[in-house]
Structure formats: C-alpha cells, structure tokens
Write a protein that binds this DNA or RNA. Sequence first.
DNA 1: ACGGAATGTGACAGCGCTGTCCCCATGACT
DNA 2: AGTCATGGGGACAGCGCTGTCACATTCCGT
Lengths: 355, 355
Amino acid sequence: MTDGTPVPRRRPTLDAVARAAGVSLKTASRVLNDEPNVAPETRAKVVAAAETLGFRRNAVAADLARGGTSRLVGFVTGDLANPFYSALAAGIERELSRHGRQLITASSDEDPERERSLTDALIERRVGALIITPTASDHSALRTEVAAGLPVVFIDRPAQGVDADTVVIDNRGGVRQAVRHLLAAGHRRIALLGDVAQLWTFRERAAAFVEVLEEAGIRDPARYVVAGAHETADAREALTDLLNRPDPPTAVLASNNKITVGALQVMADRRAAGLPELALVGFDDFAPAELLHVTVVNYDMVGMGRRAAELAISREKSQAELAPRLVVVPTELVVRGSGEVPPAAPAGLRGAGVA
Amino acid sequence: MTDGTPVPRRRPTLDAVARAAGVSLKTASRVLNDEPNVAPETRAKVVAAAETLGFRRNAVAADLARGGTSRLVGFVTGDLANPFYSALAAGIERELSRHGRQLITASSDEDPERERSLTDALIERRVGALIITPTASDHSALRTEVAAGLPVVFIDRPAQGVDADTVVIDNRGGVRQAVRHLLAAGHRRIALLGDVAQLWTFRERAAAFVEVLEEAGIRDPARYVVAGAHETADAREALTDLLNRPDPPTAVLASNNKITVGALQVMADRRAAGLPELALVGFDDFAPAELLHVTVVNYDMVGMGRRAAELAISREKSQAELAPRLVVVPTELVVRGSGEVPPAAPAGLRGAGVA
DNA sequence: ACGGAATGTGACAGCGCTGTCCCCATGACT
DNA sequence: AGTCATGGGGACAGCGCTGTCACATTCCGT
C-alpha cells in the first residue's frame, strides 16, 4: 500500500526538545516544570528548542507518570441545559480554574442508570475528585472509591449509602420564609406545588411546609401539597386542578423555577378571565423574575457550585482523613409581588407587599 | 518516620487482575476491551477476578498507550452561567456521549488571554477535538494544531487566521425577519441595540439591519444603531438615551436576551409613566419570553451545539483532509407581541400582531 | 494423513513523561 | 591540601496500559 495520505505529523516529544537543546530528557523536563537547579543558560536553550519545535507537553503522560491521577474534576449533573445545573457548573468551574484544575461535565438526564455509568467513566478517567447531583437513590457503590481516597461531593441533595461531603440549600429555611410571608399576608389556604415526590429536596420542602402551617394553627396543612409537576405544562395542569377544587387555595408556593413559570401562566389566564388573583412565591430566582414581579426564595447557585469545588479540592489536597462535611447554603426571600403584571405601580412602591 | 497515615490503598492494576485470573496481562486486556479470540472460560475467569478485586481500568494509561490522544473533547466558551452557552454545552455533551466521548468545558469569561491559556491547557490534555466560541480576534496560533490534524470547530462566530469548521446562526436572516416584521407593522424609526461592537455577530446583525432598512427606503438607517450594551443595565441606559432624542425610535431590535430584558424594563417604566408603547423584537428566545409576550428571533441552541459536536467527531474519525465546513443554523421569528403586559387578550388572539 | 487457516494466548516493547538515585563540578571551610 | 555541602545535570526505571509479533493448538478440506 503506497502511503498516499499525508502522515499526520507526530507531535514533538519532550525527548525531541531535549535532543534539540543538547540536554538530557530529564533536564528538559525540569525546565518545563519550572523545577529548581537548572542553570539559566540551560533553561534558555530548552525554552528556545521547545518554542521552535512547537512543543506541547502531554498532560496525559505527565499525569500517568505522576501516579495515574489527572488534574480533572468530574461533575455529574442532571441536565446542563437547565439554568440551575449550569449555574452550579459555572461556579465549580470557576473555583477549579483557580486551582489549575479542569472540569469535565456529564449529564445524567436524571437517569440513575446513566448517572452510574457516567460516574464509572469519570472514575476510569481518574478524575481527582467527583461532584455529583445525585439522582440515583443508592450510592453505596461509591463507598469503595471514597474509602480509597477519592474526594466525592454531593450537591443539591445528599446521597444515601455513602458518607461524603454535601452541599445543600437550606430548603426548610427557605420554605419557612416563603410560607410565613404568605401567612403574614393573610393567606390560609396555601398550596405547595412540587417536582418529583421522591426527590429529597421536595421531601424536605414539603416537611417544612407542613410544619410551618401546623405551627400557624392551620388544619390539614398537607391538603394542598401536590408533587409530580416535572415540566412547566404539568405544573399548569396540577395547579388548575387545585384551583378547581371546591375550596381552592389562595396562594401557591412553587418548588422550582419551571413550576413558577407554569403558575405564572395559569395566573395570566385567570387574570384574562377576570378571576381573582392568586398569590405566588417561587423557589429559585430566574432572570426576568423581576420583570414578572414575582417573589422568590433566592440563593446563590454559582456560590453553591464554588463551595462544592472548594470541598473537593480541600479534600484532594489534604491527605488526612477528613470527616464528611455538610454545607448548608442560606436562602433569602426576595419580595417583589405575586406575579401580577407590573402595571401602574409607582417605582417607589415596587416590591412592597403581596396581593 | 513511622508511617502513621493509613496507606491510600493503591488501585488494582490490570496486571493484578491477570495474575489473579492466572492469565497474561494481555489476555486480561483483551477481555476488558471486548476483543475477539478469547475463550469463554478465560473471559469468565478474568471478569470474575476483575470483579473481586474491584478493578477499574485506567483510561489515562489506556489513552497514552493508544497514541496519546484522549477521548475527550474540549469546549472553550464564554461563560457557562449564560443560558446561551450552557445550551450549546448541553447539545455538545449530548452528541458526544452518543459517541463515547466526554466533554471538558472551560469558561474564558470572554477574555482572549484566558481563552488562549485554556485552549493550550486542553491541547496539552490531548483532547481529541476542540470546540470554541471565539473571543480572541486572532486564532492563527491554532493553525499548527489544525494542520497536525486536531479537529477544531468554532461555534457562534467564525475565527480569523485559521481555516476550520464553523457553526453560526443565520444572523442576517434573523435580523431581516425581525426588521421586516417591524416595518410591516408600520414602524419607520427602528433601533438596533447591540452587545459588543467588535463582536462578529453584532457586526453581521448591524450590516443586515442597515441593509433591510435601506431596501425599505429608510434614510440614514444606521441612525439608531447602538452597541456597547453588554449588561442588562447598560442596555437600559442606552435605550433610555435613544428615547430621549428629539426624534426617538418607535421600535427596538434587541441583539441578545440580556438586552431584551433591559428593554423590557424600560418599557415597563414607560408604561408606568404613561408614555407611548414601544415595539420590541429580541434576538434569542428565553424561558419566560412567552409570559412577557415578546416577539423573538429564535433558533435551536442545543441543536447548534449538537451540530458542532457532529462536525468535530466526523473530522476526528475520518483520516482524510476535509475542507473546512460551514453550518448555518436557521432562525425563526416567534411572533408574540412587543413585550406589553398580557392583559385581557382573549387566548384565541394571542401572538397575532405587533403593537 | 497432512498442509494451512483460524483460534487462543503470551512476551515484550513502547506511549511520553516524572521520580529517584547517582555523578560530577565547583566553591567554601577546616 | 583535604573535606564537604551544594548546584547542575544525566541514567534509568517505571506509571498502567495497548500493539505487534510470535507461538501453540485446534479444526478443516482434500
């Protein structure tokens, strides 16, 4: 076979650089790693040789030689297209880059099976640490890895079956703020519209929700707790059903931003139909929430990612066995309104009360 | 020094598995890579040994042995926290995972310097392909890499100084749709509110903008073209300035979603102040744009990412020299309204005309 | 029954780099 | 002079895996 294809020029190796500079392989390595004890002239020669050859060190080989662990951190998340997850990713990435580490992301699409295989792939890639928004219910498979010293951090919800660092939102606190706000405005029939009932975050929020209402002396506080509104459309439907009950709620707490949007749609329809207004508080702030005049439970998503990365790196750097740590990210109620259209409200009165 | 710290148990190697199974290293390798010509019994023995030892293959070493290139694809983007970029990332990641590849993302924060160093780091990591949303104006440094056979794909805007595959939006077409829509509604004084003047996307949009207005016989069509509205707040200010001119525009084309939000804020203020309505069309759709009743130029961001990944992978797989390819993603005008509040419009009339 | 293919397995040499150890010059200090 | 620390540099053995080649066995057709 006559080799017709142009040979894909092999990259110059460190060896080639050393030869060109007239030094040994190891000396070249020293120069390129800024190790001490190299004469300035020698250093210059090597640098020049590397430059002219267009040398790029091979981080794969370097990692292997150093012990087989790469300076990569894996992030297994639900869906990168979701602003919540991508905000986490952004925070993680920012923190990592400060420590010379790179982020490798993988979306599980909330599928436990896929989460498992992605995690495996990342471990095979010998990531230095692993950050996971757990979807699977059991993570005991990771126990071996954690025991072997792999830093694993769970974010947004804790994992079961393994002790590891965890970063979560103060779900209960956030719910309490939201519900108290609605109670203070005089609401007594308050609904909670949630995502997936199995999700830890929802269970937390629902528990707090019921608790606060009970404290306020509301009877049958779980009466308007509904889960299963995974997409915006589901949320719409679920809320419509609630409102069609004989004794409908007057206020809603939406458990995430997709649901909030669904609720806002319903509210717009009601308004168009001349029906009474509904009060709304949403979990998760989102870009134009301000324009829509909706009160939300806000927290720092990017900061949350950053915290997770910090935990991962600190564990990776310290050899000692650290006890699992828990970081709870505080929430803050941003009072704006209930999602009513911002009609003629004088600017000064903005964000003052609920409907 | 008495070694007090618990030795971080080394991971079992393939060699250990082979020994445990009583076969050679290579045979174990064959089994774990599903290579043919291994007797079923032998296979079973190896699998069992791997299982009991908790063996995880080391992808770093495997990549190195295979020729030093990893099955990783790098994505250098502006800011992962921006929904536009994260949608791209999601599309890329989805396509890659279908081909057994993993995505490693890095945010340049739109800083050319940082973009450069991240690109370098990824090349050192020996990614199999590189996808970049270029921020730097010159990418001739990548010429060597491209010549050496590294698949490089530019996304959202083309690069200068190097011939490579590129995926862009049909900016001109999108602008044409938007402007014609406004013209048809009777507007003659139309403004274009843009991001960064140097950005290729803005220059394209501005050129098309001027062109369409000229075709329509509008004099001095660039009169209301303003750039530099990088953040929402800037956009607000820029638009306010425009509206304070003696002969203010009656319609605005916002060049991205942040700007659209800024414009919506201004419109809300005007409405509150009883000033005449302003027509608005935005570039980029965003989650609650529907609720805000705003007409937008929409296109498939996730699909765009997917296309870029396809280009990268096809190039990586084919050894032949492919000529640089250009993919233009079509845009679609989603007519909803001009961002006026959705007051009493009967559902049936929704999204029918402009203000 | 016998050559040749197909099948199953192993030895061994790298992939490109880093860590360890070791050697050779200096220069400083008895 | 003789010793010894110190700076500067190289040889070499891996890191954990895969590719190549060589070898042993079995199976087939004629």
